[in-house]
């Protein structure tokens, strides 16, 4: 990944909170390379504020994932198919 390559180059110094923040999404996806993953976790273990922020970020994603909305009622599919048949038949008649 270009972003990771760039950041890996920059990260010869210790990770700062801001660096850890940039990596939050990749960390939750398990997409960090092993070395950066270890540095990320090392920082979070030592930094209570980053630890709390990570926890809030993770909870935000979990809460969002619970925000489900109902599927359409089954009759909608039949109504949609009827709509399509009507319009496509009309289209064919128009073309003919």
């Amino acid at each position: 990944m270009n972003l990771l390559d760039q950041l890996r180059h920059v990260f010869k110094r210790p990770l700062m909170c801001e660096d850890v923040n940039h990596f939050l999404a990749l960390y939750l996806e398990g997409a960090l390379d092993p070395k950066t993953h270890a540095r990320f976790e090392g920082h979070v273990q030592r930094c209570p504020n980053c630890n709390t922020f990570l926890d809030q970020y993770r909870q935000t994603v979990e809460l969002v994932r619970e925000d489900e909305i109902a599927d359409p009622p089954p009759e909608l599919i039949e109504l949609t198919l009827a709509f399509l048949r009507k319009h496509l038949e009309n289209g064919q008649n128009d073309a003919g």
């Binding site: 700062m16 909170c17 801001e18 660096d19 923040n21 504020n49 922020f53």
Partner: peptide, 18 residues
């Protein structure tokens, strides 16, 4: 978005309990 100063969070975050 969170604010940073010298690479550190400006704010202190409190644990959540939804």
């Amino acid at each position: 978005q969170p604010a940073f100063a010298q690479g550190m969070y400006v704010d202190r975050y409190e644990a959540w309990n939804p």
